[in-house]
Amino acid sequence: MKKLLLLLLATLIAGSMWILLAKNPVSSSTSIQAKLADVKDYKYYLDKGNDAIGKSMTKLDLVIVEPIEMQQKYIVNAQKSGTLVYGYINAMEADKWNTALYHQLKQEDFYRDKQGERMYFAEWDSFLMNLTSTHYQDILLAEIEKQIVQKGLDGVFLDTVGNINSYLPKDEQKRQNEAMLSFIQQIKKRHPDLSVAQNWGFQTLADYTAPYVDFIMWEDFSYPVVGKDEWSLDMMQKLVHIRNKFGTQVMAIGFEEELKSRALAEKYHFKFFYSPAGSYYNSWQ
């Protein structure tokens, strides 16, 4: 009788544990972070695909694409093979080529300097944006819904986050950084299972966004640029600390001296991708 009671008790406990696990599964964020930690080969590519590119995507651990350009069939096939696919969203700039988004903008959405002038980037044909504008945030959130969520991508890659610290006066950076944090929190509130990544913005990451960001990209992680630079070496240590605390991985991209750049990245356990074309990601290499 005693053995029977113990058996029934064990069964009830096992059943209760199963119910708890069913109600509280391992979060997809934890799963994504585990996959990102294991990434070895990744690419950053912002143009259309073809059958050869699609096949190559299936062999990668991670790929960042422009979801407006990349055909859905290649995204789906890559994900079926276990490739993590992130979709590009330009957070702090509005590209004039993206007419569907650009035509929704109001004057309040553009950043203006103290003279009231907009900041234009001729190289990219884009304008610096004002993320404190709730209207602009709503446009971006709708773009994420349309281009990332509805297409079933694993995460959103927010480009130009680093513009806040690179181009804005010191006395304006806090408001924009707080707006970036609020924006990312809104993404996570609406789409808890969607992974978030950002390009540059190391101080923004350290002071604001790290708890919500699964990886940060470091472009021009080239040995001649960062190998002996005191600021860069200090930042590498800080990013290691952030990774240890929040699980935020570092995706480094080298433009020069591939072997030395890769060795430096591997020293800090950063993921590495070599792009001899620099910050133009329109050719599959």
Results as ranks from 00 to 15, higher is better:
15 G>T: 01
23 K>M: 15
118 R>H: 05
214 D>P: 14
1 M>D: 04
132 T>G: 09
170 K>W: 06
14 A>Y: 09
263 A>C: 05
7 L>A: 08
276 P>F: 14
158 L>A: 10
139 I>W: 05
179 A>D: 06
98 N>M: 02
18 W>G: 04
243 R>D: 08
16 S>R: 10
206 A>W: 11
154 D>P: 03
166 S>G: 01
126 S>F: 07
94 A>H: 05
98 N>P: 13
102 Y>A: 03
203 Q>D: 08
117 E>A: 06
10 A>L: 15
35 K>S: 11
10 A>N: 14
82 G>Y: 13
275 S>R: 10
224 P>W: 00
276 P>C: 06
263 A>E: 14
213 V>H: 00
110 F>V: 12
82 G>N: 10
173 Q>S: 14
191 H>S: 10
71 Q>L: 15
172 E>M: 08
154 D>H: 10
25 P>N: 06
282 N>L: 13
175 R>C: 08
50 N>S: 13
250 V>T: 03
149 V>M: 12
212 Y>Q: 09
274 Y>W: 09
188 K>V: 12
157 F>W: 13
139 I>K: 03
168 L>W: 04
204 T>Y: 02
52 A>E: 15
261 S>D: 03
31 S>T: 11
203 Q>L: 10
245 K>I: 12
266 E>F: 14
180 M>R: 02
22 A>T: 12
242 I>R: 00
211 P>Y: 08
19 I>K: 10
65 V>M: 08
162 G>R: 00
58 T>A: 09
235 M>N: 03
152 G>C: 04
67 P>V: 13
279 S>L: 12
200 W>P: 05
207 D>G: 09
113 D>T: 05
58 T>W: 02
217 M>W: 02
254 G>Q: 07
199 N>Y: 04
15 G>Q: 07
45 Y>Q: 04
268 Y>D: 03
238 K>I: 11
86 Y>P: 00
154 D>G: 15
74 Y>Q: 01
180 M>K: 00
151 K>V: 09
3 K>T: 05
75 I>M: 11
23 K>I: 10
80 K>A: 06
99 T>I: 12
214 D>Y: 14
255 F>D: 00
156 V>N: 01
98 N>Y: 07
152 G>N: 07
59 K>V: 00
145 E>W: 05
15 G>C: 14
126 S>M: 05
64 I>K: 01
210 A>W: 03
106 K>N: 13
87 G>A: 14
32 I>Y: 09
133 S>N: 06
160 T>K: 07
65 V>D: 02
5 L>R: 03
94 A>F: 00
253 I>E: 10
9 L>T: 07
52 A>M: 14
269 H>E: 07
105 L>S: 13
210 A>F: 14
131 L>V: 03
264 L>C: 01
